[in-house]
Design a protein around this nucleic acid. Structure first.
Length: 683
DNA sequence: GAATTCCTAAACATGC
DNA sequence: AGCATGTTTAGGAATT
């Protein structure tokens, strides 16, 4: 009877899982995105008319972003095609051909609505290739724009001077407008760069790409918001419409353009780091083309912006009978003007978004593969993007450790009783399984409390950022939390904090797991409540904890099997959900599961990710953390082996700990623990 | 099928 | 009253 009502509430509670809810919410957004895709066609169809541009302008930011992302995907797709066919094509191509080959994707982005999924893309195209392409495109466009703006600035300056001297009646306004437009361009460009930088920062890219990040962009204070984009597109939606109009509309908030100009003038610094990349086909990056028309005019028989009798300029599908006509069209309609540059700018952002997305997905994929024991046949392709994107280091961390531990399977050799898992043990997860959620079982590591510390150490970043349920029992987690502190005692609230700090999973459904924590604290004898100066604290009675560990399961094949399968599914499920969410609406879902505390965690993470793989950093790592600082230390303890972890379990008191806990901590507890260590399963 | 473990939910008590 | 903290009970699920 009571069960009924209880089960009802239970049902309602879990079903309200935030993650799912948000995901579905975003899925709805995806529907909107689909509409945005439809808007692609609509925009293309209506492009000929001014109303078409207006309809474009009606797209919501979300739709627009989705739309742009689709464009970006097409970019990659196009590039794939080129890679597959174009590169091996007749030898009539010279470097120019390769140059144009690079530009094709950009310009063809709007072409076909159907496209490859990011996953498909990644399967075919190696991330470094795609990345090189994207970066090169950015560099190209950036450089073009920069040169253009420079010239414009000079011209404007000259004009301004001459006009001021000659007389100022009617030209004043026009000039003002133009200057305004120019300044607007600069500002927008700057904002775009800024946004890119922010994106990178959010993803942790910056820390690993000091070259790019060290540009003048950092000094820019404000970022462009997605809502700016519709305006942008609106402005360029109507080919015939002077771009100035669109610029005028938004020219009001122009301020401080002087600094804008100067900062922008320094922008070229951004491109050099990019320009060193070579094309996937080995051709060096082309830096010279200043206007697409000139650089392509010599292209024999084809033009990257021309295909199927249509102009492939984004948003333009003008029919051109032959190449000559197209060239004319290109020079007239898509000359180097505000509109074209604006379009270029948008495209640039699309590419940037794609780049970020690609990095994310690559990480995710590798994490998935790591969990599934599908060792990437070619780790190399992923290594680069991964290095570039330490941001979501949760995955890169797993990835890295996976790569390290896979070859030998010894990095984290089965410690103690958990040994049987060896053959199938997931790289980053030494002995436990992941659960996507719910009451599913089984938290293996509880049986072998020792592994949990190393487990956590190894996958600290993963658990911290991925919304994946840790494979440990509440009891073991609580114990771990307590033992991690120098004095091995925590208040309830501190335990809570430890949970939320260490596991993204516990950042939601707080009522549930907090209740469980309290329940466990009360239920298990191994947790002893001690009245302390600061109130009640909880300690671990190690003897009791050992006692309650049944010696079973040490080699149970079935359990191990279940464990593994559970892991695979759990990890896959969680990652997949996250991937779905993010891949579908990367621009829309920000605060998602990977983000909690992102700002605070990103910086150290990126750094760690770089060093983690090789860093031995054996014993001190997990045991030395000063109070309340586990996040900084733990995941580096990569190679910590059974002795280390056993030791840690035995005496979680860090090196620096012994002095104070010996006196401050609950005496009885300490005694117990120090006498007990031999009982650890390391035997 | 029983025993055990773990998880989740909930009711209740207590103190601030 | 509201909240945090503890305690206890109950039931479901998985495993042995």
């Amino acid at each position: 009877m009571m069960v009924e009502s209880a089960s009802e509430t239970i049902r309602s509670a879990p079903s309200g899982q935030n993650g799912v809810g948000s995901l579905s919410g975003q899925a709805d957004g995806g529907g909107g995105g689909g509409a945005g895709a439809a808007g692609t066609a609509g925009g293309g169809a209506g492009r000929d008319t001014a109303t078409g541009s207006d309809s474009n302008g009606e797209m919501s930011p979300a739709e627009l972003l989705h739309f742009q992302q689709q464009q970006a995907l097409q970019v990659a797709r196009q590039f794939l095609l080129q890679q597959a066919s174009g590169l091996s094509s007749p030898g009539n191509n010279d470097s120019k051909q390769s140059a144009s080959a690079v530009q094709v994707p950009v310009s063809v982005a709007m072409m076909s609505p159907q496209m490859l999924t990011p996953q498909q893309m990644q399967q075919i195209l190696s991330p470094p290739q795609l990345q090189a392409l994207l970066q090169q495109q950015q560099a190209l466009m950036l450089q073009q724009l920069q040169e253009y703006y420079k010239k414009q600035q000079e011209q404007l300056h000259l004009q301004l001077l001459t006009q001021q001297q000659a007389g100022k009646q009617q030209p004043k306004e026009a000039l003002g407008n133009k200057q305004l437009a120019f300044q607007q361009q600069l500002l927008q460009m700057q904002q775009l760069q800024q946004q890119h930088l922010l994106n990178l920062q959010r993803q942790g890219l910056v820390s690993l790409q000091p070259n790019q990040a060290s540009g003048p962009l950092q000094t820019l204070p404000q970022a462009v918001c997605p809502s700016d984009l519709p305006q942008l597109w609106k402005g360029e939606g109507a080919p015939g419409q002077p771009a100035e109009d669109s610029v005028k509309q938004e020219g009001l908030d122009l301020t401080g353009t002087a600094t804008t100009a100067t900062s922008f003038a320094a922008a070229p610094k951004v491109s050099p780091p990019l320009s060193h990349h070579t094309l996937p086909n080995g051709q060096p990056t082309v830096l010279t083309p200043r206007r697409d028309s000139s650089s392509h005019e010599e292209t024999p028989g084809s033009h990257p912006l021309y295909g199927h009798g249509e102009c492939k300029w984004p948003g333009c599908e003008t029919l051109c009978e032959d190449l000559g006509q197209f060239i004319k069209h290109l020079n007239t309609e898509h000359a180097l003007d505000d509109r074209s540059t604006a379009q270029c700018r948008v495209q640039m952002q699309v590419v940037q978004q794609l780049e970020i997305q690609l990095a994310k997905e690559s990480e995710r994929l590798q994490a998935m593969m790591a969990h599934l024991h599908m060792r990437p046949s070619e780790p190399k392709p992923f290594s680069q993007p991964l290095n570039r994107v330490p941001g979501s280091s949760s995955f890169s961390k797993v990835t890295v450790s996976a790569a390290d531990s896979f070859p030998d399977g010894l990095v984290h050799p089965p410690t103690s009783a958990a040994a049987p898992v060896t053959p199938l043990r997931p790289p980053g997860l030494s002995s436990a399984s992941l659960h996507s959620g719910g009451p599913t079982r089984r938290r293996s590591s509880d049986k072998f409390c020792s592994p949990i510390s190393s487990e956590l150490a190894q996958n600290h970043e993963f658990y911290k950022n991925a919304d994946v349920r840790p494979p440990f029992t509440y009891a073991s987690l609580i114990r771990q939390a307590i033992l991690e502190t120098p004095d091995r005692q925590l208040t309830l609230n501190e335990i809570y904090n430890w949970f939320t700090r260490m596991f993204a999973y516990f950042r939601r459904n707080t009522a549930t797991w907090k209740n469980a924590v309290r329940h466990n604290l009360s239920l298990h004898k191994c947790f002893v409540r001690v009245e302390n100066v600061k109130g009640a604290v909880w300690t671990v009675d190690e003897r009791e904890y050992q006692k309650r560990r049944p010696p079973k399961m040490t080699g149970s094949p079935t359990l191990v099997k279940n464990m593994i399968s559970g892991l695979s599914y759990g990890a896959l499920n969680a990652s997949y959900q996250a991937a779905l969410a993010e891949s579908s609406f990367p621009l829309l879902n920000s605060p998602g599961m990977l983000n909690p505390g992102s700002a605070s965690s990103l910086l150290p993470l990126s750094h760690d990710d770089v060093g983690a793989p090789v860093e031995p950093l054996p014993s001190n790592g997990s045991s030395s953390p000063p109070r309340l600082s586990p996040p900084q230390y733990s995941h580096q303890v990569q190679v910590k082996e059974e002795p280390a972890e056993a030791e840690e379990d035995r005496r979680p008191g860090p090196p620096l700990g012994p002095p104070n806990p010996s006196t401050s901590g609950p005496p009885e507890d300490r005694d117990l623990e120090e006498e007990l260590p031999p009982g650890e399963e390391l035997s």
